[in-house]
Design a protein around this nucleic acid. Structure first.
Lengths: 189, 189
DNA sequence: GAAATGACCGAATGACCAAAATAGTCATAA
DNA sequence: TTATGACTATTTTGGTCATTCGGTCATTTC
């Protein structure tokens, strides 16, 4: 068994369950069935181990979203499926959820950085897709940086904040309203 | 000079400058040129004083927005003017900025509550306006609770989060994009 | 007599330090 | 050469005590 890999897996599980701060290197070593020193032969320190996990998470999420995007489908369908993929991904990999909780209640600085990196990546991805869609003439000309920002913020708010004090809505319903709002706005056609 | 009023003004200034926790009752009394005991003849405790300030601010902001809304104007114009009115309402903004900063870095619980109250009030206001507009047939049918939520979150994100790691943009430009997004969406017409 | 006040009180806070836990190292073992 | 856990250095925690602050009330002011 690849030691490096089992360390990464153990760490991801631990971070997902207990958060960054509450995960000790000793514990991660135990889970990985590896001596503590071994971890330091592969990673400079706890923060770098964490950082690599985040990098992988971003990569995998991007991949999941990319898989949902087909050249020949209209923009909003791609958007719809990609968002769906990302939501599913978040659900199965609880890491991002746990981390945003940790940031909220104790402002752990490496975790704040990590979440910012994730958001940046998502923003980048969305903006690129928007650029392509504008290029293809599928959507109107617009400042794609601002629009990407708005879309991501909307998405995050709906996923994380809506259920705080509103009755839960179906994922499908949510995507549908989001799509209506994003694509056509409120004006009566 | 009305003592109650000067206490409220002093407290508002202090909360805006130093936040809730860092504002001491002694200090507020000093600023108001009033004995500390006097504050307690008007307000049961620090939290109620704070609460009344928030209530007033919400009321004033609502009033400002209402002034911009005219029955006989189309929805998007009302939206436009109301947004401008609110964004120019400095008093509310400054306090809101300071308070959200405080919540972020020390989770002061009365402050969290206050911000939630403000958001609730805004949400309510927006939803009511949306309901009216739907009723009048000015905008399409939609789940106004979710749409109100989306509009408010968008506004807050643009105002408070955009400049965190993006080049500042003109207020006008920002509101223009927001309006486009909300009214017409991205679809090419 | 009613309203205002600031000295006073108990609770909450935070500075400080010792003790415990944890990150990171390295001599030894496999 | 690679892996390891006992060891060290650093950080966090738990407990203390002095200080601060919210809130009261006997006294003063008008």
């Amino acid at each position: 068994m690849d030691r490096r890999k089992s360390i990464l897996e153990a760490a991801e599980r631990s971070f997902s369950m207990f958060g960054y701060k509450a995960s000790t290197v000793d514990q991660i070593a135990k889970i990985a069935n590896v001596g503590k020193g071994t971890i330091y032969t592969f990673f400079a320190n706890k923060e770098e181990l964490f950082s690599e996990i985040i990098t992988n998470l971003v990569k995998e999420t991007k991949l999941a979203a990319s898989k949902a995007i087909k050249e020949d489908r209209p923009f909003y369908e791609n958007l719809h499926y990609a968002l769906y993929e990302v939501i599913e991904f978040r659900k199965t990999h609880q890491l991002a959820v746990k981390l945003s909780q940790e940031v909220k209640e104790m402002n752990t600085s490496p975790v704040t950085d990590a979440l910012q990196r994730i958001e940046k990546a998502v923003l980048n991805f969305v903006q690129k897709e928007l650029d392509i869609a504008v290029e293809k003439g599928e959507i109107k000309e617009c400042p794609t940086d601002i629009v990407a920002f708005m879309m991501v913020k909307l998405y995050l708010a709906l996923i994380f904040d809506w259920e705080r004090d509103n009755p839960a809505i179906q994922k499908e319903k949510m995507l549908e309203v989001l799509e209506m709002f994003v694509m056509d706005g409120l004006r009566k056609s």
